Simulated assay, not measured.
Amino acid sequence: MSGDDKIVFYQGRNVEMQACPINPAWVIEGAPVARNFVLSRSADGSASTLLWDCTSGVFNWYYDIDETVYLLEGSVVIRDDSGVEHHLGPGDHALFRAGSHAAWRVESYVRKVAFCRNPVPQPVLFAARVVRRLSRMMGLAPAPAPAMFNGV
């Protein structure tokens, strides 16, 4: 995949997963082995989508970005900072905001798609909205996104 590709296709599960070791200081139990494959990265580097898998083990995860996960196979028990445990399996998803922490217990294996995004500070978002609205009012910007993106 090059940065100039407009459309990129991946066939089935035939992607070459790369070693993505979990920080050893975060491992609580076992010897989990994690791998990933970057499916896409935004042109500005603020967002990416990747496949990630991991073998059994228990470990902490500290999020410095917003990450939405969608489980494809396997299962995991995630304990949040309040001590509540959440069981996730195929088809389940979760959002971890930047600055959050969770303890992951991978029972045997888990494979997920992760949608990662660096959060934009609120003042920057406000300024961008103002510029977009002014541009539309002056006829310099295209119409808003299609309805499927409303509320996003």
Score class of each variant (00 low, 15 high):
residue 49 T to E: 13
residue 105 R to S: 15
residue 86 H to L: 10
residue 141 A to I: 00
residue 29 E to Q: 07
residue 24 P to H: 02
residue 71 L to D: 01
residue 120 V to P: 05
residue 30 G to C: 06
residue 51 L to P: 05
residue 137 M to F: 10
residue 55 T to I: 10
residue 139 G to W: 06
residue 116 C to P: 01
residue 60 N to H: 14
residue 90 P to T: 12
residue 129 R to N: 11
residue 3 G to D: 13
residue 64 D to G: 09
residue 60 N to W: 15
residue 114 A to L: 03
residue 71 L to V: 02
residue 41 R to K: 13
residue 119 P to Q: 12
residue 33 V to D: 07
residue 73 E to Y: 08
residue 28 I to M: 13
residue 70 Y to T: 09
residue 12 G to E: 11
residue 131 V to L: 09
residue 133 R to P: 02
residue 62 Y to M: 11
residue 112 K to F: 04
residue 72 L to N: 11
residue 88 L to R: 11
residue 85 E to G: 15
residue 33 V to E: 14
residue 137 M to E: 15
residue 26 W to K: 07
residue 133 R to D: 03
residue 56 S to H: 14
residue 73 E to S: 09
residue 111 R to Y: 04
residue 45 G to R: 10
residue 69 V to A: 14
residue 121 P to N: 08
residue 88 L to D: 04
residue 54 C to V: 08
residue 47 A to C: 07
residue 31 A to Y: 08
residue 4 D to Y: 15
residue 93 H to W: 12
residue 17 M to W: 03
residue 3 G to V: 13
residue 87 H to S: 04
residue 51 L to T: 04
residue 147 A to W: 02
residue 26 W to M: 12
residue 61 W to C: 02
residue 61 W to L: 05
residue 21 P to L: 06
residue 114 A to E: 07
residue 65 I to V: 14
residue 92 D to K: 07
residue 62 Y to Q: 06
residue 128 A to S: 01
residue 70 Y to N: 11
residue 137 M to I: 06
residue 18 Q to W: 00
residue 107 E to C: 07
residue 66 D to P: 02
residue 40 S to N: 10
residue 87 H to K: 05
residue 66 D to Y: 10
residue 108 S to V: 00
residue 118 N to V: 12
residue 47 A to M: 14
residue 59 F to N: 01
residue 60 N to V: 08
residue 100 S to P: 06
residue 86 H to V: 02
residue 116 C to H: 02
residue 36 N to I: 01
residue 137 M to Q: 13
residue 40 S to E: 13
residue 145 A to P: 03
residue 69 V to Q: 13
residue 64 D to S: 09
residue 7 I to T: 13
residue 82 S to Q: 10
residue 104 W to E: 03
residue 90 P to A: 14
residue 87 H to Q: 07
residue 37 F to H: 10
residue 20 C to T: 04
residue 45 G to W: 08
residue 99 G to E: 10
residue 137 M to T: 07
residue 48 S to I: 05
residue 59 F to G: 00
residue 139 G to N: 10
residue 133 R to M: 14
residue 90 P to L: 11
residue 132 R to W: 02
residue 48 S to W: 15
residue 118 N to D: 15
residue 18 Q to I: 00
residue 36 N to D: 15
residue 147 A to G: 03
residue 121 P to V: 06
residue 61 W to R: 08
residue 106 V to K: 00
residue 60 N to G: 06
residue 143 A to P: 00
residue 55 T to P: 05
residue 35 R to L: 06
residue 32 P to C: 00
residue 140 L to W: 09
residue 113 V to C: 12
residue 8 V to S: 12
residue 63 Y to S: 05
residue 111 R to N: 09
residue 106 V to G: 00
residue 94 A to T: 06
residue 35 R to A: 08
residue 11 Q to V: 07
residue 42 S to E: 03
residue 133 R to Y: 12
residue 96 F to S: 10
residue 40 S to P: 03
residue 67 E to S: 01
residue 117 R to C: 12
residue 29 E to Y: 10
residue 55 T to S: 06
residue 76 V to C: 05
residue 95 L to T: 06
residue 102 A to Q: 12
residue 20 C to V: 05
residue 94 A to E: 15
residue 31 A to F: 08
residue 52 W to T: 00
residue 51 L to I: 13
residue 82 S to F: 02
residue 100 S to M: 08
residue 87 H to P: 02
residue 82 S to C: 03
residue 78 I to A: 03
residue 24 P to A: 02
residue 79 R to H: 06
residue 110 V to D: 04
residue 47 A to H: 04
residue 137 M to V: 08
residue 45 G to T: 10
residue 60 N to C: 07
residue 86 H to A: 03
residue 43 A to N: 05
residue 90 P to C: 11
